[in-house]
Design a binder for these strands. Structure first.
Length: 844
RNA sequence: GCCCGGGUGGCGGAACUGGCAGACGCGUCGGUCUCAAAAACCGAUGGCCGAAAGGUCGUGCGGGUUCGAUUCCCGCCCCGGGCACCA
């Protein structure tokens, strides 16, 4: 046979066509093998694929192919998250309809994915902008509505002036900017649609513990985002204008009821609805109004920076502190947030730094009520129930653990978060109906309506007579009309033929909702649709979903640590409560891959540092690109692009090609006696490497797995160089070469297939072969080299049989000349023998 | 401020539960082949001293535990990320 060079450009398309013809990656539920569901976060069809895609999908492909070889029935699907703003922006720029732009990009990306040789089951592809898909998103909306999880309400929401739409809290990132365009987000009071994710706040937090296969970092981020605080609600009676208590009360949330005796003033957020009523027509109105107006002018950035100056104004009114009956003044303060808790706060200046600063600024009293035991005040006040000290000598508030003082009958109790003092005060309040234990979350409801065209229409109708009416299920999908001219800035609200409808309930004139749904609603359940992607009768067959789900291994970018991953968990829990699925969490194991950078920066067109995957495929082939991106760094770390590194991998693949070809194209020569030692060493190396590669894949250490394959190639090449042809064991040599090909199959599927079928002359695809076996016993070397340490420093080495006993090892170590010399100079105080590793002498 | 990561040669990175720091690759230097170059192959490659043998210092910094620490403990510094007037 004429010798050929490694030519990825001829072998890659060839095998891609064969695999497709043979439906190699199509899978079904009726299979006796155990299942694995390997999923990568589906892409947004933004245009050409970038290195981030290459990395994400190469990782997933190795995992999927590996599990297949391990004997699993592996579901490995792909699709497109196809609604969204970039399509509209592109339309405005180029005059192409968002649909046209989106589908063209999908075709482009699909072609690239095929060129990369990813092992997808293409029959299960979904595109979220297809009516066959988004109709089920509308169905979900209706089901959520039935379950009371949909709400339309007016509230202060995030508005992106550049994207011209509202955003969910999760889509406002960093210092208050839009997640997509990075514009500064404004607050606007608007009526919008929400999914009540807060109903699941506690479970979303608790169930993080059911996810040992998730990175700690992601779980922490979600826990921070959900932001649970435990404490109490406390009712303060409001006094009338004459200072006499009324029947009305204002409730606050506090994590520190144990500090209640130190509450010397009471604060309302500037947006609090009560403010206007309390001050209207009074002498305090002007000053309060100034604070309210100033707060409105504060931009998100100023507020978020935390540096905004604290300002406030007295309202002229008082509330009654429930624990001691004291009347405390009600102020309006700009640092109180309407969105958190009740928008009203009990101020305890001795225990809260913000209140402390405010009190100092406005000359309000700061009596100590919790003091640390090493504080001089402790001795003075330990038995004081009444207030004898009205002002602390401190520079700052104290919020650590301590003892309650000047706190009536509670004086002397331990204070601090989770303390007995907290429990005692809460119980006392509860008995008297003045308070109760409470939990507060930072998580807000998910704002899902968007004032944009290219999205899933919300299936709701506004009827003057009936109010909000759901679109009847049998009328789904509400089709997104395609004759909207986005280049003229049109939205659905410009198309009467879309929104002018009859009310489904009363038949009267009504208006169809013209907002679309957040694209994150589309991506919150796509992994379920893959289980039964072509079903036109229901969202998915529950039996099929029960077979494949949950996703065994999910792979994607850390940027979705909160957004997509939190929303998907929420959807799954609602689906469970609807009886569609029977598990609590959609993604059992999560791998968050790092970014691909160049010159220390993320690749982006604006920086001009993009390396195009297609160019690299054209030069080195998809296999080299895949192997390179897996070799250069562990998958969860950022990866710095290096052209030389890619060339190095390409060289490695060439060496593999030549070596395997050499081995199989040389006829065995048995004319001499086989070099047994060399053959055994190669067998040993083969077993060691198979074990190493297997362990490394299981731990997602693809970089070290590839290193080990390089070591096997190095050993096999060395064998060939060092052992003359007539003394080689061609069986051993061929077995090593075949093993190398099998190990490489998940990483470089085309090269492996070509070598397997064409060079090794094996009859069936390498990708349906069982994963190579290894025996740890056979991987052990018969002899090991011991390092001999004297007082912690390596002073010599001895090679001994692997099974040498401890005494024999020590004796051999003592016999090393240099060591013997050092031992002779002193007294041996201690000897440590670590089997197979080293001997350590302590000499004095 | 709180919570997560992370700091190892010229570079990317190895070192699983404490056991020979620097696997593997890149780069660099030297060599073989060649008229020459490329490719390929062989060899060297942490710093310092030394011709060599060898010695010595080395995993952000300072301590500690241990026969032995990149790994464990205490106290810092720096970088990246998340949350943050959250009551």
């Amino acid at each position: 046979m004429a010798r050929r060079d490694y030519d990825p450009h001829s072998i890659e398309p060839k095998w891609q066509a064969v695999w497709e013809r043979d439906r190699l990656h199509s899978v079904f539920e009726d299979d006796e093998r155990p299942k694995k569901y390997v999923l990568e976060m589906f892409p947004y069809p933004s245009g050409d694929i970038h290195m981030g895609h290459v990395r994400n999908y190469s990782i997933g492909d190795v995992v999927a192919r590996y599990f297949t070889m391990r004997g699993y029935n592996v579901l490995h699907p792909i699709g497109w998250d196809a609604f969204g703003l970039p399509a509209e922006n592109a339309a405005i720029k180029s005059g192409t309809h968002p649909a046209e732009w989106t589908y063209a990009n999908i075709h482009k990306q699909e072609a690239s994915f095929r060129r990369m040789g990813f092992s997808y089951d293409w029959d299960r592809t979904v595109k979220t902008c297809d009516p066959e898909y988004y109709r089920w998103g509308q169905w979900i909306f209706l089901k959520f509505w039935e379950r009371g999880l949909v709400e339309r309400k007016s509230s202060p929401v995030n508005w992106c002036p550049s994207c011209k739409t509202v955003l969910a809290n999760e889509q406002v990132i960093g210092e208050g900017v839009c997640w997509r365009c990075k514009s500064v987000v404004e607050k606007r009071e608007l009526e919008q649609w929400f999914f009540k994710i807060t109903e699941y706040a506690q479970e979303l937090l608790d169930d993080l513990e059911k996810l040992p296969g998730w990175p700690e970092r992601v779980k922490t981020m979600q826990a921070n985002w959900i932001g649970r605080s435990e404490g109490a609600e406390v009712d303060f009676m409001l006094c009338d204008a004459d200072g006499e208590p009324t029947e009305r009360s204002i409730t606050v949330f506090t994590t520190r009821p144990d500090t209640l005796f130190g509450c010397t003033f009471f604060l309302l957020a500037p947006e609090h609805p009560l403010v206007e009523e309390l001050v209207a027509g009074t002498e305090h109105e002007a000053a309060v109004r100034e604070v309210v107006e100033a707060a409105k002018r504060e931009t998100a950035i100023e507020r978020e920076s935390g540096e905004a100056k604290k300002v406030g104004a007295f309202t002229g009114r008082y509330v009654v502190n429930p624990v001691n009956g004291e009347k405390v003044p009600v102020w309006v303060a700009n640092y109180v947030l309407m969105e958190y808790g009740t928008g009203a706060v009990m101020a305890v200046p001795c225990g809260d730094q913000r209140d402390f600063e405010f009190a100092r600024q406005y000359g309000l009293p700061v009596p100590p009520v919790v003091v640390a035991e090493d504080d001089p005040l402790f001795e003075q006040l330990r038995d004081e129930r009444g207030r004898v000290v009205d002002d602390v000598p401190w520079e700052a508030a104290y919020d650590g653990p301590g003892v309650m003082v000047q706190s009536g009958d509670f004086t002397g109790l331990p204070a601090g978060k989770g303390s007995e003092g907290v429990r005692a005060v809460t119980a006392w309040l509860e008995e008297r109906g003045l308070g109760r234990p409470a939990v507060n979350f930072r998580l807000r409801d998910w704002l899902i309506s968007r004032q944009r065209y290219w999205g899933n229409p919300i299936p709701a109708i506004h009827c003057e007579r009936c109010g909000l009416v759901p679109v009847p299920e049998e009328e789904l999908p509400v089709l997104l009309p395609l004759d909207v001219d986005i280049t003229k800035g049109e939205t659905l609200a410009d198309h009467p033929e879309f929104y002018e409808v009859a009310c489904p309930r009363c038949g009267g004139p009504a208006r169809r909702e013209t907002d679309t749904m957040d694209t994150f609603t589309c991506s919150s359940w796509y992994y379920l649709r893959y289980c039964d992607a072509r079903n036109d009768d229901e969202i998915f067959d529950t039996a099929k979903a029960a077979y494949w789900m949950p996703v065994d291994q999910y792979i994607g970018g850390i940027e979705h640590a909160i957004l997509h991953l939190l929303y998907s968990r929420f959807f799954t829990k609602v689906f469970r409560d609807m009886g569609l699925v029977s598990f609590d969490e959609p993604f059992t194991n999560l791998l968050t891959q790092g970014m691909v950078k160049k010159d220390g920066e993320t690749m982006s067109k604006s920086k001009g540092n993009v390396v195009a995957p297609e160019e690299m495929i054209a030069r080195f082939g998809a296999d080299a690109l895949r192997a390179y991106i897996l070799f250069m760094a562990p998958p969860d770390k950022d990866l710095e692009w290096s052209q030389e590194g890619l060339e190095g991998i390409y060289r490695f693949l060439n060496r593999v090609w030549r070596h395997v070809s050499d081995v199989f194209e040389t006829d065995p020569d048995a004319s001499g006696a086989v070099d047994e030692d060399a053959a055994k060493a190669l067998v040993r190396e083969r077993h060691r490497v198979v074990g190493k590669v297997t362990e490394d894949i299981e731990r997602f250490q693809f970089n070290t797995a590839l290193s080990a394959m390089m070591e096997l190639l190095n050993a096999a090449s060395e064998y060939r160089r060092a052992v003359p042809p007539e003394r080689r064991d061609s069986g051993v040599e061929r077995e090593a070469a075949r093993t190398l090909v099998l190990l490489l199959a998940p990483y470089t599927p085309h090269l492996a297939e070509e070598l397997w079928q064409e060079v090794c002359a094996e009859p069936r695809s390498v990708h349906v072969q069982p994963w190579p076996q290894w025996d740890p016993e056979l991987a052990k070397a018969p002899e090991v080299e011991y390092a001999v340490q004297v007082n912690g420093k390596v002073r010599g080495r001895v090679t001994l049989p692997a099974d040498a006993g401890v005494d024999a090892v020590e004796a051999a170590a003592r016999a090393v000349p240099k060591v013997a010399e050092l031992l002779a100079n002193g007294e041996v105080r201690k000897v440590v023998v670590v089997p197979g590793k080293l001997v350590s002498f302590v000499v004095k």
